[in-house]
Computed example of a mutant assay.
Amino acid sequence: MKPFCFADGSIIDSQTATLHPMDLGLIRGYGIFDFFRTVDYQPLFLEDYLDRFIASAEKTYLPLPLGREELRSVIFELIEKNDLQQGGFRMVLSGGVSDNHFSPADGKLFIFAESLDFPSEEKYQNGIKLLTLEYVRPIAEIKTTNYTLPVWHSVNWKKLGAEDVLYHWNRWVSESSRSNFFIVKNGVIHTPDQHILHGITRKHLLKLAQNAIIRPISLEEVWDADEAFISSTTKVLLPVTQIDERKIGNGKVGPVTQSILEKFRALEKVTVAQ
């Protein structure tokens, strides 16, 4: 965490930020957040992230104490004060302290600047392993702070050589715990349409892909895919070459995955330069 953050209505020392112990974010796990990156001191796709964060607050009945312009202003001030050339921003809105300790209240807004490490180059070159997990994330279309199951489950991932999980329900896949999921079949990209968070990286990848198909995808189709990958703010695009004990395609990173990653990295440069 970087030295300065936003909390209690102003920019303060990050070490002094506090949360009331009876806040719903703590006692009920109720709150929202969003996360974006800075590249050369510019917040990447900032308006998209602000759209989603503001919409999440409305959908969870949590009043935002700052409007869009004020949020943007605070973010750029934090970039300057933290000298954040390359890094991450985490916006968090807690559930608040309510009279009945259950209903949403006036939450507390935090904006933290963080250092950011990408996955190793080896993972981009060789791909990663996912573990299937039967689960549907609650109100998946909202970026809530409720990650209880994957945090608990993650203790086993490293033991099994996995990077993350792939959620499915009734044999229909949805997403990873922190990423969107894609398969490639006969050169065409497909991605699930239900029980997912509409990722910002996903949004821009779909624009780049042009011929991508958004639809229900079964586990059987995943096993039969030529390629697979996940996308997120902190991973960009990671090839998936194994799920459980099955190889995806020939078990190597495929040409469509490599191509769309190169296009996205080029898009980043263009976006920052504008």
Rank of each mutant, 00 (worst) to 15 (best):
R72F: 00
D117S: 15
G88S: 12
G31A: 14
S98R: 10
G127Y: 07
V136S: 00
L71R: 02
A140L: 13
Q125S: 14
Y41G: 13
S56Y: 09
L133N: 08
Q85G: 12
T60N: 09
L44R: 01
L93P: 05
E134W: 04
Y147P: 04
P21M: 10
D106V: 12
D23L: 07
P21T: 08
P119T: 14
N146H: 14
N82P: 04
K81W: 08
Y30I: 01
P104F: 11
I32G: 08
M91W: 03
L46H: 03
G96S: 06
I75H: 01
L84R: 02
P65F: 03
P63A: 15
L149R: 05
D48Y: 08
Y49L: 04
L109Y: 04
L26K: 05
Y61V: 10
S115I: 08
F35V: 02
F118S: 12
P104K: 14
P63C: 15
H20F: 15
R90T: 09
A55D: 15
E80C: 00
L24A: 05
T60H: 05
A105L: 01
Y147G: 04
G95Y: 05
P150M: 06
P63T: 15
V92D: 03
G127T: 13
Y61N: 14
V151Q: 04
E77G: 03
G67C: 11
P119M: 15
Y30M: 06
P63R: 13
I32L: 14
E77I: 02
F45T: 06
F102M: 13
L149T: 10
F110K: 14
P43V: 09
A105Y: 01
P21C: 10
L62A: 08
D99V: 12
D23S: 10
T132P: 02
K81N: 12
R137C: 10
S98A: 13
P21D: 05
V92S: 07
F118N: 08
F53L: 05
L93H: 07
N100C: 09
K129I: 00
K108R: 08
Y49I: 03
E121K: 14
A105D: 08
R37L: 13
L109A: 08
P119Q: 15
L44V: 09
P119H: 15
G107A: 09
P65S: 14
P43N: 11
I54Q: 06
K108Y: 00
L133T: 11
S56F: 09
L50Q: 07
D106S: 15
F112L: 13
T132F: 01
L78Q: 13
F76G: 01
M22Y: 08
E134C: 07
V39W: 05
I79A: 04
L24P: 04
R52S: 01
L26C: 07
M91I: 13
G67R: 12
G88I: 05
E70K: 05
T60V: 09
L71D: 02
A105H: 02
I79P: 02
I79S: 03
L46S: 03
S115V: 08
V39Q: 05
